[in-house]
Nucleic acid binder design. Structure first.
Length: 494
RNA sequence: GCGCCUCUAGCUCAACUGGCAGAGCAACGGACUCUUAAUCCGCAGGUUGGGGGUUCAAGUCCCCCGAGGCGCACCA
């Protein structure tokens, strides 16, 4: 086999394997077409047999058999000696073998890249989850289900962009490095800018910048972007995850309920072919309309107790205690009510429901409810027992916002590391004038999980966060990378 | 962060109550005129995640460390 230095710089592909199958869906055994194609991909299986060679070639669209015949294919012997995992380009005629397999009868071929490590067991592939996530490229070659999930996610995001674009939303990109991490109750990652000599935070939400753009006259904006929260890792949490946030001027949270159910139903229909999804072996119907219910109602249904933020704190604590829900002494009524809901109710909500009207105390950026001053106009969309979306009629009053920020700062001073920091730039923007606006956030990883029936968030993230690997142990190393042969060294040192 | 479980050849997995670390596939060498996880012959492959301890003897029992999975906590 020739050296790495001889590998070509490009290869002219004239057909994908899928295109060949589309064009010749029903060739009979032994038929020839006279049609010449050039295909490229990786060798997944190889069956050299004397003066023939049968090779399964896979590209991003599918697979096709390469059929090598001595005297027809260039250097059949070498063709049959290629390893599983090698990339090759091959040109030849589309034919059907005597046994009825659609094939490319190879005339010429070229090695495009060597696979020094192989692709795992050719029948069982790889299943070690750590290997799958640390070396996702292997997983993708070997496991069809992994390819399917990541492709579906990509399609979901693409459909989402188009859908929002059609409704007049414009896409923007706001800063990821924040001088203060605002817009969500979460602990941030901290970093440092040398030239500025200043600490910066990786954003926990794009919210405040997006609303400043609404102040600037972008009446419908959205951002799809990574946010970072310094929290634990679990099958439903990755430290960096992708959020859709959108803001619509002149709208309130009821408008966003309609938007949310319509959007999710559309994505489900386009990606799975139905609004009736199967998740974790259970059916969930996401077609609109979704149920709308208040947080109080749902707690009454699921925990069998009436709660209200207006109740005396002692009474709320007693209710929580009776339900076995631990509460901190520092918590106010709103936080206790929310805690009761989260511990007793949320996980039971399988079918989609808009949980409406949250305590003001726990929603520092949401606008006071028009009918109840201790609540805000906020909803969370819950599906399969999990929060999928969070939205509210935005707080537009700068004085009220300052008061809310100050309450957050008090919590922070009392040791709550997730409490918000007062953001003067944002307050100034509100003073400049934010029209009535509704805002929505959807965790896209979670949405993708729902659509592809993934039980772990890692399945829909190409490279999920894992603990850095330090020990001398290594995965799948045959020593080749650590010990390049002399033949390859000059290439590495170029 | 805490609890439980897992880690054996490149991959997928065996190895009873502690008793000589094995197989299939891959890789490597060879045979084969239509294969479909081709088949056949041959060859090689390991500090059993790392370190320490108990024992005549440790993949197996004990301790420490590392990584992963699940659950709890936190959140989306």
């Amino acid at each position: 086999m020739s050296g790495i230095a001889d590998l070509p710089y490009r290869f002219e592909v004239t057909a994908t394997t899928a295109e060949i199958r589309e064009r010749f869906p029903a060739l009979g055994p032994g038929e020839e077409t006279g049609v010449m194609v050039s295909v490229a991909g990786r060798i997944m299986l190889s069956r050299p047999q004397g003066r023939f060679a049968f090779i399964e070639l896979r590209d991003s669209s599918g697979t096709i058999q390469l059929f090598g015949v001595e005297g027809v294919a260039r250097d059949l012997k070498q063709l049959g000696r290629l390893s599983l995992g090698d990339w090759i380009g091959a040109s030849g005629e589309v034919v059907c073998t005597k046994r009825g397999e659609l094939s490319v009868k190879v005339l010429d071929w070229v090695l495009l890249a060597e696979s020094r490590r192989g692709l795992g067991d050719k029948w069982k592939g790889i299943s070690d989850v750590e290997l799958r996530y640390r070396h996702r490229e292997l997983d993708l070659w070997v496991n069809e289900a992994s390819r399917r999930k990541l492709r579906a996610r990509s399609k979901m995001v693409s459909l989402l962009r188009t859908w929002l674009d059609k409704r007049g939303f414009i896409e923007v990109e706001t800063p990821i490095l924040h001088p203060v991490a605002g817009g969500a109750l979460a602990r941030p990652f901290v970093t440092y800018h040398n030239a500025l000599g200043a600490e910066l935070y990786l954003r926990v939400a794009p919210e405040l910048y997006l609303k400043r753009l609404v102040v600037g006259g972008f009446e419908r904006v959205f951002e799809i972007g990574r946010v970072f929260r310094n929290e634990g890792i679990s099958p439903r949490h990755n430290p960096e995850f992708t959020m859709l946030e959108l803001y619509q001027a002149y709208a309130d949270y009821r408008d966003l309920m309609a938007l949310t159910e319509e959007l999710v139903a559309y994505l489900a229909q386009e990606i799975t072919g139905s609004t009736r999804l199967i998740y974790a072996d259970r059916i969930v119907e996401v077609g609109p309309p979704w149920r709308r219910a208040t947080l109080y109602e749902l707690v009454a249904e699921n925990a069998g107790v009436d709660v209200s933020v207006k109740m005396p704190i002692e009474r709320l604590r007693r209710i929580a205690d009776d339900l076995g829900v631990p509460v901190e002494p520092s918590w106010g009524p709103g936080k206790v009510v929310l805690e009761i809901y989260e511990k007793t109710t949320e996980a039971n909500l399988w079918d989609p429901v808009f949980v409406c009207d949250y305590p003001k105390e726990v929603s520092p950026l949401a606008r006071q409810h028009r009918d109840d001053p201790v609540l805000v106009e906020r909803f969370e969309a819950i599906l399969v027992g999990r929060e999928l979306a969070n939205a509210f009629s935005e707080l537009t009053d700068p004085d009220d916002q300052r008061t809310r920020f100050e309450a957050q700062m008090a919590l922070r001073a009392a040791g709550d590391e997730e409490a918000m920091v007062l953001d003067e730039d944002y307050l100034r923007a509100l003073e400049e004038g934010l029209p009535p606006t509704a805002g929505l956030g959807i965790g896209l990883d979670r949405l993708a999980m729902l659509l592809v029936d993934a039980q772990s968030i890692r399945e829909v993230i190409p490279f999920p966060t894992l603990r850095p690997f330090h020990s001398s142990r290594s995965y799948g190393t045959g020593g080749a990378l650590e010990d390049p042969s002399d033949r390859d060294r000059d290439v590495f040192e170029k």
